[in-house]
Design a protein around this nucleic acid. Sequence first.
DNA 1: GTTCATTGTGAGTATAGGTAACAATGAGCT
DNA 2: AGCTCATTGTTACCTATACTCACAATGAAC
Lengths: 149, 149
Amino acid sequence: MTSPDPDGLLAEQLLRLTRRVHRIQKRHLERRELGVTPAQSRLLRTLAHYGSPPRMADLAERLEVVPRAVTTLVDGLEASGKVRRAADPSNRRVTRIELTDEGRETLRELRGARRSAAEEILAPLTEKERAVLGVLLDTLVDAETAKPC
Amino acid sequence: MTSPDPDGLLAEQLLRLTRRVHRIQKRHLERRELGVTPAQSRLLRTLAHYGSPPRMADLAERLEVVPRAVTTLVDGLEASGKVRRAADPSNRRVTRIELTDEGRETLRELRGARRSAAEEILAPLTEKERAVLGVLLDTLVDAETAKPC
DNA sequence: GTTCATTGTGAGTATAGGTAACAATGAGCT
DNA sequence: AGCTCATTGTTACCTATACTCACAATGAAC
């Protein structure tokens, strides 16, 4: 009883907020003229987390999209020289995705854009509130990642 | 210092979570075969909040999209008989959007879909945590709505 | 009545994602 | 060896959402 979310209101807020996140992120990316879309930016960041170049399938899993979506993203990034497709000698089916020097440079600049975008979005929250929000979002993201369903 | 979000991580989580919200919402909508996309669902819900039929421009503002986007949504909803475009006698430029009986019925069924989608998304959180999350999201959404920038 | 603002929409574009079919490859089994 | 089956990425489409720009119709102001 007295549920705080009787009608999916929370989900609504989440969606609404994210539309804004998208817009703001896009604007900050455009302002810096990095030639990178938000999704490409996400892929680049993900790429940086790997020790050795991941496969397309690895990226798809990490990004939680179908492999086909990764192909498009990598196409764009490769066209602008930010990543490189490399053949895997041990398994000729897989292609490994490597960051180029330019990609690494873009990544550095991206950090600033992400930082200012995040700052704009989270401005109304105090440090403490941000921490709480971070924990809550973590819980949601992790739990659903773990869930096999 | 010791900022909890030094690199826009929070924004990243937000985006990631919302991708999931989108997917889940879409799945729940499809499961019920209501013939309504998520964005259309949002418009229907928004429509229900008005006392008298709003103008396209009103909806655009409320939904935080450009008027042109509303046209497409209303086109779809009108085609499936859920809303109706009505002329405004006092100003022939404006078209008012009314819910049809079928739209109202869909809205009722939608409530169930939203509820179950929200439940699935928020499952890992306790009641209390959901309340906290609700407050935080409220703060973010409201603050940015108020901001003229 | 000429000019200007409002309102909705046609036309076109971009982004992000999805499915289905497929070719190339590897792995397992007989 | 060969035959079957799973993996991997991609080609070819399709959808949803939202954007800009241009425009026609209308109303408002001077």
